[in-house]
């Protein structure tokens, strides 16, 4: 079971992060959060922070999957879990990229 979890964990965390950022975006637009901080509009700042957090989480997971104490012992699971780890990272960077480039509540 642990091997199955190693394979599933990174994309699962991506899915959670993706849904959470979408939820955060809905919350921001639904409640009309405004204001600025650090020279950026507050909504953008919050979303960017969430984006960064999602990427950091994926990086941490990937590092863990490469760490000898956490990674799978058997070659095949090690390979697949690292591949899905990379998939999770790419997915986080790619799918949440809009927080940096599009207008948030238009």
């Amino acid at each position: 079971m642990r091997d199955v979890i190693r394979i599933l964990i990174a994309p699962l965390v991506w899915l959670a992060a993706f849904s959470a950022v979408y939820g955060l975006h809905g919350l921001i637009c639904g409640h009309g959060i405004t204001g600025t901080a650090l020279g950026l509009p507050l909504p953008r700042l919050l979303l960017l922070a969430a984006y960064a957090l999602a990427i950091l989480l994926q990086l941490a997971l990937l590092a863990a999957l490469y760490h000898p104490r956490v990674s799978a012992t058997e070659g095949f699971t090690r390979f697949v879990s690292r591949a899905t780890g990379w998939a999770g990272l790419v997915a986080a960077v790619w799918t949440l990229l809009p927080v940096a480039v599009t207008s948030y509540c238009g």
């Binding site: 979408y22 975006h25 637009c29 979303l47 809009p98 207008s103 948030y104």
Partner: peptide
């Protein structure tokens, strides 16, 4: 839905 939501 706002454009950013669609963009995701």
């Amino acid at each position: 839905i706002p454009h950013m939501g669609l963009a995701f």
